[in-house]
Design a protein around this nucleic acid. Structure first.
Length: 818
RNA sequence: GCGCUGGUGGCGGAAUUGGUAGACGCGCAAGGUUGAGGGCCUUGUGGGCGAAUAGCCCGUGGAGGUUCAAGUCCUCUCCAGCGCACCA
């Protein structure tokens, strides 16, 4: 018999698909009238072309491929594009190392990845392929930036920013992990620099509220985003320094504890620090402390375990609720970036303030007590119920915490000393980078006109050629003098170009829209086409993008909705995070050197054994350990299916309508596979189900009387496994005398055949299984109990005992309680 | 410290609504096919007692509980992974 030769089969069908444009999907003629109920946009996160495709990608794209194939065969028009997140530091670093242009490195990597993807046989519409580093694409990234700029959603300001001394560039907050650069692991410094920001904080509430528009997102991703946004309701309370005639507001979530405030703290970076220190005996000490604190590494400063530090300024603020004078301190446990950069110290009810008060022997004054029970000694009493009672708080004493919050803020508001306020942990998105390989920011600086956006018709602002990519703390673009020096489009005078480039997360915040209309030269996309395809029905990617990419993309979509560019507010209706792959007990990563590249396995077992194995390994969302032996099992199964297919194809095509137990098994398998993929998003169990069917067929295939059954069941197995192994199944389908399985309607389970005439009744005595017996369906409960009692293996347990109770689960079991 | 997710044979895992624990695959063992090996086909394979393909007992990290019935629900606890963590 002809051997199963995956490489020949795979190459053959990949050629056919390409020639026939099997997975190319044109946009609807009139997208506005398109039936969006019959479309599916399946999207996987676009790869960063870092060199090679690894098994994590293989899992990601194979998942999407199964969904796409199934959807197509169920009558949907499926959009399934691919592209490359092509700008970014790794290509630039590789370029520096190899002495080549980042573009060459990137294009070489893209070519390699494309080759690998084609070899895997994914059903991608290659006509929509895009790269974010091509001028045809980044032109529109710049265009969008200008739209944001016009709306004041992109702005420039001097700010303390995260600076990575190794990569010589700034980082967004989201790219700093435990005070270290996400990419290279160096300790991040705080530096005050002029930088570009997107005003994502203006959308904080909508990013929270509009989560309810999402159909199906993992709860943990939503939680992570909620935590990241960190919305806190509270009040702004204005304290006053009489002798300096200045008001300092603070933000607090606990206005009910205002009477317990015994000190006041401002952040070392607070703009009033210098004035507070001026002329006091503490001046030198304060300024020294502020300078020192600002220069401290962020990691060290942010460690809650370390002892609190701080200095007294010599000044006092007046507490607006009781006119108490509170000493003003400077301490680095107060952050300039959150709230107002100043706090009221309430040591009795805040752990951090408690620690500070203990360190500097400041008074601790409890003003809230539990409704019942005792306060633990030596800690701050927080209280979470809201029922806690106020004491020593003037007219508010006796109120519950919840009542007092409202009453005190109201009282303050009536005196102009406070108001309700909301604070967020989320900061504006720092988007400028001092690196070469990114999208240039389309802004000019004119001596006369100031900051001037590049006119739309002058886009794209192309990346200039430079000699040297090595970062030196300023953008390498600054060296391209001819490019930097230009004329002002407003006044015609001298102007200089912005030399920073954009964070690559800007590029990937809208790529899913460009796929809809990738060759549009007039606009980033046609609105009607985008409105037809979006939202993405199923987005698939790694959990590592739970915050960064997904939050940014949601933000971009909301802004574009406000600008009238799109008519939806959330880009991704359903999100799925596949699990991480481990090898030899560790997360696969380049630095650990345990990345598995598919090629070696594709060479030996074919792409389809690899595709099958990544899905068979376990639940798609779970982290899993790659095992070489596992893939051999898949190869064996495919060989088994191959031989079965050839054997059946070589037999008589049987026109007699098939019936029998195998036909029923086939229909049960159809129901299981369809339900598992479509409803349960479970990909491993359908494979097991088809394997079971194949095993059953093997037991019947040598009986000539069952040839029709065997043929039907075999064809069903081939059809059901097609989304997983489209090449092999296509080949067998052809040999079985059919054409184009990829566009053959997905089989439907025959309800009538699923109905059974008998079932196996499980008989338990006192909850323990004692026997099983095949009985007809439709027996009454009493009849089932009677049948159960007569069973010889059950009888000994009933001997001489009364059956006190009998529980019947229809169609399943009888439990006799004695 | 707080939050989330998970813990099932030698291994990866299945068990969908509280109803037969261990599907399917790997590994291992036996038989068949074969000149041999590989491959393929068939059978067996959670643990214990047992000659047994007779039967019984134990068994889903641990301890309790609810229930006729618990891998599944509840309480406590241990372990692992992930997220957050001076955010007022």
């Amino acid at each position: 018999m002809e051997r199963y030769d995956p490489n020949t089969i795979e190459r053959k069908w990949q050629g056919v698909w390409e020639r026939e444009g099997a997975f190319t999907v044109p946009n609807p003629e009139s997208p506005r009238g398109g039936d969006s109920d019959k479309k599916t946009y399946v999207l996987e996160m676009l790869p960063y072309p870092s060199g090679e495709l690894h098994m994590g990608h293989v899992l990601n794209y194979t998942l999407g491929d199964v969904v796409a194939h199934l959807r197509r065969r169920r009558g949907y028009t499926v959009l399934r594009p691919i592209g490359y997140d092509a700008f970014g530091l790794p290509a630039e670093n590789a370029a520096i190392k190899e002495g080549r242009h980042p573009r060459d490195v990137t294009n070489r990597n893209i070519a390699a990845i494309r080759e690998q993807m084609k070899r895997m046989g994914w059903s991608i519409d290659w006509s929509r392929e895009l790269s974010t580093a091509e001028p045809e694409y980044y032109r529109w990234t710049q265009w969008l930036f200008l739209k944001f700029f016009a709306e004041d959603l992109a702005y420039r300001r001097e700010a303390f920013v995260n600076w990575c001394p190794n990569d010589q560039t700034v980082l967004a907050n989201e790219q700093v992990i435990d005070g270290h650069c996400e990419r290279c692991g160096w300790e991040v410094e705080a530096r005050s620099l002029e930088q570009w920001f997107f005003r994502i904080t203006a959308y904080a509430d909508r990013l929270l509220e509009e989560m309810n528009l999402l159909e199906s997102w993992p709860e943990r991703v939503l939680t992570m985003q909620r935590n990241w946004i960190g919305r806190s309701e509270g009040a702004e309370v204005v304290f006053r320094i009489e002798e300096l005639d200045i008001d300092i507001p603070v933000f607090t979530t606990r206005p009910d504890t205002l009477f317990g405030s015994t000190f006041f703290v401002v952040a070392p970076e607070h703009p009033l620090v210098a004035r507070l220190a001026q002329g006091t005996p503490h001046e030198q000490e304060v300024l020294e402390y502020a300078r020192h604190a600002a220069a401290r590494p962020a990691v060290e400063r942010a460690d809650p375990e370390k002892e609190k530090t701080g200095v007294f300024t010599g000044h006092f603020v007046t507490n607006p609720v009781n006119d108490n004078r509170l000493p003003v301190w400077v301490s680095d446990y107060v952050l300039m970036e959150y709230g107002t950069g100043a706090i009221m110290g309430v040591p009795a009810h805040d752990e951090r303030d408690f620690a500070f008060a203990q360190r500097f022997e400041l008074p601790i004054k409890p003003v809230v007590v539990p409704a019942d029970g005792e306060v633990e000694e030596g800690t701050a009493f927080i209280g979470h119920s809201g029922d806690e009672k106020l004491i020593d708080s003037a007219q508010f004493s006796g109120m519950s915490s919840t009542e007092a919050k409202e009453a005190i803020v109201e009282w303050l508001e009536s005196r102009g000393r406070g108001r309700p306020a909301v604070s967020y942990r989320l900061r504006d998105w720092l988007l400028s980078r001092q690196r070469y390989w990114g999208c240039p920011i389309p802004i000019l600086y004119c001596d006369e006109c100031g900051m001037v956006p590049v006119p739309e018709e002058d886009l794209p602002v192309l990346l200039p050629e430079v000699e040297e990519y090595l970062p030196k703390g300023r953008s390498p673009l600054a060296a391209a003098e001819e490019w930097v020096n230009t004329t002002c489009p407003k006044c015609g005078g001298k102007a200089r170009r912005e030399t920073d480039t954009m964070d690559t997360f800007v590029d990937s915040s809208w790529y899913y829209l460009r796929y809809c209309d990738p060759r549009n030269g007039e606009a980033p996309f046609d609105r009607a086409i985008v409105d037809y395809w979006l939202p993405v029905n199923q987005y698939i990617g790694g959990i590592e993008h739970a915050i960064l990419h997904l939050l940014y993309a949601r933000f971009f979509t909301k802004v574009m909705n406000d600008l009238g560019l799109v008519d939806f507010r959330e880009p991704f209706a359903r999100l799925f995070n596949q699990g991480m792959l481990y090898y030899h007990g560790a997360k696969m990563s380049k630095s650990k050197g345990n990345v598995i590249v598919p090629d070696q396995y594709v060479d030996r077992f074919g792409a389809e054994a690899v595709r099958l194995y990544v899905l068979f390994m376990g639940p798609a969302e779970a982290d899993k350990e790659w095992q070489d032996a596992g893939i051999e099992g898949m190869f064996r199964f495919l060989g088994r299916l191959w031989r079965l297919g050839l054997e059946v194809a070589g037999g008589e095509p049987n026109g007699v309508p098939a019936s029998g137990p195998l036909v029923r098994r086939a229909h049960e398998t159809i129901a299981k596979v369809t339900d598992d993929i479509e409803r349960r998003f479970q990909f491993n169990t359908p494979i097991a189900a088809v394997m079971e069917l194949v095993n059953d067929i093997y037991h019947a295939k040598d009986d000539p009387a069952r040839a029709a059954e065997v043929r039907f069941a075999t064809e069903t197995a081939v059809s059901l496994i097609q989304p997983y192994v489209p090449h092999l199944s296509e080949e067998l389908w052809e040999r079985l005398g059919h054409e184009r399985l990829w566009s053959t309607p997905w089989p439907e389970a025959d309800r009538a055949l699923l109905e059974r005439e008998t079932f196996e009744l499980v008989v338990q005595v006192n909850g323990r299984v004692r026997d099983r017996v095949e009985v007809p369906v439709g027996l009454s409960e009493d009849e089932l109990i009677a049948r159960a009692k007569t069973l010889p293996r059950v009888q000994p347990y009933l001997d001489g005992k009364d059956v006190k109770k009998a529980v019947v689960v229809p169609g399943r079991l009888v439990n006799l309680v004695v």
